[in-house]
């Protein structure tokens, strides 16, 4: 549905986006991650046709943004960063304007507007001037604009930015519900959001794609992935570590913290699938320490993110 081919953008001699390529199919939600100034918004702006690429192109549902810009834009719903909306209009008037631009008229236009107002929980503020809305509501109005015409491609630049936790949850649910028949790209700085919403994540740093994988597989790149973490009481920590280190399949072990009688330890396997948990358990049963918690680490996205973007 969305094919991005070698998109490149240079501002002066600074390369903001460098040879970025990927495709998003219908039914897929692609998360766009990266540190500030990585080039996420610039990529989205090129796909939506706001700024022309220095090189490369994007093809939306068969329409090249360079040669069939209008046809391509018709298929896109776009929520820009910071959700720009006209402050002097009321919510309904604004959506009416967008619906007319999107080519709806008469009854259908009214129906679209009503439907969108319901979907985005804007009913209470529908006759209020946008200037008087809170930031979160403005964000919702702009989001409403992007889904008004039920586009096959949705491009959302930080869609939950500025929303309260309930609304964040609602918007994520809505994005997931809509995803069945849409190709969706969303950028976010919230790793947990990426994990719950996206089927696939692209991490971009300094304009280049540095990772393109599912969130679950990204996590396996974490150094702690597969490690066994334990919270214990009493016993002899140093002795425990020494013994655990001799177990087959264990690459290393360390004490994370000690507080009085309580201490925490982590045991790293040689390979992700090494069966070390059972051996650790039997080691524990031989000692006098009391186990209060034990679990296998899934890996931490923030750690993966940091290690591949710096």
């Amino acid at each position: 549905m969305i094919e991005v081919k070698s998109l490149t953008k240079r501002f002066g001699n600074k390369t903001a986006v460098d040879d970025v390529s990927f495709t998003v199919e219908k039914g897929e939600i692609l998360g766009f991650l990266g540190p500030n100034a990585a080039g996420k918004s610039t990529t989205m702006r090129m796909i939506t046709g706001f700024i022309p690429p220095t090189a490369g192109t994007a093809v939306i549902g068969g329409n090249d943004i360079r040669t069939a810009a209008i046809a391509a834009r018709r298929l896109i719903g776009y929520l820009p960063e910071n959700a720009p909306v006209y402050p002097d209009m009321t919510v309904t008037a604004y959506l009416d304007f967008c619906a007319q631009i999107r080519g709806f008229s008469g009854q259908e236009r009214k129906a679209r507007i009503e439907e969108t107002i319901e979907k985005c929980f804007l009913r209470d503020v529908r006759h209020q001037a946008i200037a008087t809305l809170s930031k979160g509501f403005r964000q919702r109005v702009c989001f409403a604009q992007s889904i008004l015409h039920d586009p096959p491609c949705l491009i959302l630049d930080e869609p939950t930015d500025g929303l309260d936790p309930n609304q964040k949850h609602e918007v994520r649910q809505m994005i997931r519900r809509m995803s069945a028949d849409k190709a969706i790209i969303l950028s976010t700085h919230i790793l947990e959001e990426m994990e719950t919403v996206c089927d696939r994540a692209i991490i971009i740093a300094r304009g280049r794609i540095v990772a393109d994988d599912t969130p679950a597989r990204l996590k396996t790149r974490s150094a702690v992935h597969g490690a066994v973490s334990l919270t214990l009481k009493k016993g002899d920590p140093d002795n425990f570590i020494a013994r655990v280190k001799t177990l087959p399949g264990v690459a290393g072990a360390q004490i994370l913290s000690r507080e009085g009688d309580n201490w925490r330890a982590r045991v790293f396997p040689e390979a992700n699938d090494a069966p070390i948990l059972q051996r650790i358990l039997s080691t524990l049963s031989e000692g006098e320490a009391e186990t209060s918690a034990i679990f296998v680490e899934q890996g931490r996205l923030d750690e993966v993110f940091r290690s591949i973007t710096t």
């Binding site: 209008i70 896109i76 820009p80 720009p84």
Partner: peptide
């Protein structure tokens, strides 16, 4: 100034 130009120029109009 308001950034609305970004939406205006990405609408399917010339």
């Amino acid at each position: 100034r308001m950034g609305t130009i970004e939406l205006l120029l990405t609408f399917p109009i010339t």
